[in-house]
């Protein structure tokens, strides 16, 4: 089902994730604690002890640490079918050889190295509507 949403920004959250804590799980747990239905990553900076990125076709890239820099992180957190917050986050990391890798961060496989800072902005949905069956694609 294709849904159009209209909403407005709400609360803003600064989250510091300490070493060895998982990136996605920490964001999702924060959303659960705060009662956040939908939020968007607005800014993030930090490092990972190990990175696992999903690329096209579902293949996973496991990138060894002990340190990889997060160069960018974007995406949103919203309730999955079970009602629990689910973070869908993609980005770019730099490894110890100075090479860059991109993909979608895999839950449970991206522990923080030194620190990860994430700024989340709440998205307060005011109305939802289904995209019309006769939507005009031109």
């Amino acid at each position: 089902m294709a849904i159009i949403e209209q909403g407005a920004p709400g609360r803003i959250f600064y989250v510091r994730i300490h070493p060895n804590e998982d990136l996605l799980r920490s964001v999702e747990h924060t959303a659960r604690e705060a009662g956040l239905a939908v939020a968007m990553v607005r800014s993030s900076v930090g490092s990972l002890a190990h990175a696992c990125l999903e690329v096209a076709g579902g293949r996973r890239l496991d990138l060894p640490g002990p340190a990889l820099e997060i160069m960018s992180l974007q995406g949103e957190v919203r309730a999955a079918a079970d009602g629990l917050p689910q973070a869908l986050l993609a980005g770019v990391v730099m490894d110890l050889q100075g090479k860059f890798h991109a993909g979608r961060f895999v839950r449970g496989r991206n522990p923080a190295c030194m620190t990860i800072e994430v700024v989340l902005e709440e998205w307060c949905v005011e109305q939802r509507m289904e995209l019309s069956d006769d939507a005009q694609y031109q």
Binding site: Y14, V15, H18, R25, H29, P64
Partner: peptide, 24 residues
């Protein structure tokens, strides 16, 4: 709830682990 999966490499840092693992 915020730990990585078993088997994912984590680090032994030089200092004692802080009791706080996340600030919001």
């Amino acid at each position: 709830a915020t730990r990585p999966d078993p088997g994912v490499p984590v680090l032994q840092h030089p200092g004692p682990p802080d009791a706080v693992r996340r600030n919001v």
